[in-house]
Simulated assay, not measured.
Amino acid sequence: MTVVALFGAGGKMGMRLGRNLLDTEFEVRHVEVSDAGKQRLKTEHGVDTVDQSSAIDGADVVIMAVPDTVIGKLAANLIPTLAPNTMVVILDAAAPYAGYLPERSDITYFITHPCHPPIFNDESTEAGRNDHFGGIAAKQGVVNALMQGPEEHYALGDQVARAIYAPVANTYRCTVEQMAYLEPGLSETVCASLLVVMREAMDEVVKTGVSKECARDFLLGHMNILAAVIFEEVEGVFSDACNKAIEFGVPALMKDDWKKVFEREEIMASVKRIT
């Protein structure tokens, strides 16, 4: 039986992962330092915690379900104590890409991060349609990177990823640097920022007297069909009027050099700010 030590088990992400791990054949050992987290684990999952040394004794996999700002400190304390060939699973590429993981050639570093359920999906249940984050009922993709370690460890890492983020539709293999381009680059710096701008734009329309409900329905409905065409979910073309609005709208909204956010130096600077 594969033994998994889950660090940060009583935190927000740890509880999500731990819930899914309860339904697997992994032997899971829960590590949590806060009293509130320990109580959550006992009340919601019915499990007790163990100390760090007991958790890693004979563990095959160690999952660090802690915030990016804590990974460096935890890793510095934890990694030197692990047995050779242990797999360390990190849930975000930021800290590994920024160099916060200790150098140790005889262990495996595996990075995995969810795509979250897509806007366009085939969810047929209410639970699936309402699972926007993923890991409960809606299928999602997962991105993996074997940062270091033997190639045969990738299969184990992928198995862990599919368990903690279940239900999983697809997993995609990338490098750690490519994962950093996906997040924070694509998902947060670009997507989240533009969505905030779109919400602010909706609020400007509401100021003219349009009801919030009307503006919200109008915007989200257009987001749906426009995105379906742009991302090739459906075949279609925009009207001449829409194309003309885009032609003038993009330069009005975006700086000419906005794509520099994907330059390696900018991605690293963003990662450093996060961690």
Score class of each variant (00 low, 15 high):
61 V>K: 00
53 S>W: 07
56 I>H: 07
47 V>D: 04
44 E>A: 13
40 R>G: 06
44 E>G: 04
63 I>A: 10
63 I>S: 12
33 V>C: 09
54 S>M: 09
31 V>K: 12
54 S>I: 08
50 V>Q: 08
65 A>K: 05
28 V>K: 05
49 T>P: 07
46 G>V: 08
57 D>Y: 05
48 D>M: 11
44 E>K: 10
35 D>W: 01
53 S>E: 14
53 S>T: 14
39 Q>A: 12
36 A>N: 03
28 V>S: 09
64 M>S: 08
33 V>F: 11
48 D>T: 14
67 P>N: 02
63 I>L: 10
47 V>K: 11
66 V>T: 14
69 T>C: 01
39 Q>I: 01
65 A>M: 03
27 E>Q: 15
48 D>K: 12
59 A>I: 09
68 D>W: 07
51 D>K: 05
37 G>E: 09
39 Q>L: 08
68 D>G: 07
67 P>H: 05
33 V>Q: 13
40 R>W: 05
56 I>L: 07
40 R>N: 14
61 V>Q: 02
43 T>F: 03
51 D>A: 05
50 V>T: 13
34 S>C: 07
38 K>T: 06
59 A>Y: 05
30 H>F: 15
66 V>H: 01
38 K>W: 07
52 Q>S: 12
48 D>H: 13
48 D>V: 08
34 S>E: 08
30 H>C: 14
26 F>L: 03
31 V>N: 11
64 M>Q: 08
66 V>M: 06
28 V>L: 05
39 Q>C: 00
52 Q>V: 13
46 G>S: 10
55 A>W: 10
38 K>A: 09
63 I>V: 15
65 A>G: 04
55 A>K: 07
65 A>Y: 06
58 G>R: 03
42 K>E: 12
48 D>W: 04
60 D>S: 04
29 R>G: 05
42 K>Q: 12
67 P>A: 01
48 D>R: 11
69 T>R: 07
29 R>D: 06
44 E>L: 15
57 D>M: 05
38 K>D: 03
52 Q>P: 00
26 F>K: 04
55 A>Y: 12
61 V>D: 01
67 P>Y: 07
42 K>N: 09
34 S>A: 09
53 S>K: 10
58 G>P: 01
32 E>W: 14
41 L>G: 11
53 S>G: 04
29 R>T: 06
47 V>N: 06
67 P>R: 03
38 K>R: 15
69 T>Q: 07
45 H>Y: 14
68 D>C: 08
48 D>Y: 03
28 V>H: 06
58 G>L: 04
30 H>N: 11
69 T>M: 03
32 E>I: 14
49 T>W: 11
68 D>M: 05
60 D>A: 04
46 G>R: 12
41 L>T: 07
46 G>P: 08
60 D>M: 02
48 D>P: 03
57 D>P: 00
62 V>L: 12
51 D>Q: 04
66 V>W: 00
36 A>D: 08
57 D>I: 00
28 V>T: 15
45 H>R: 15
50 V>M: 11
66 V>Y: 02
47 V>A: 08
46 G>E: 11
69 T>G: 02
26 F>D: 07
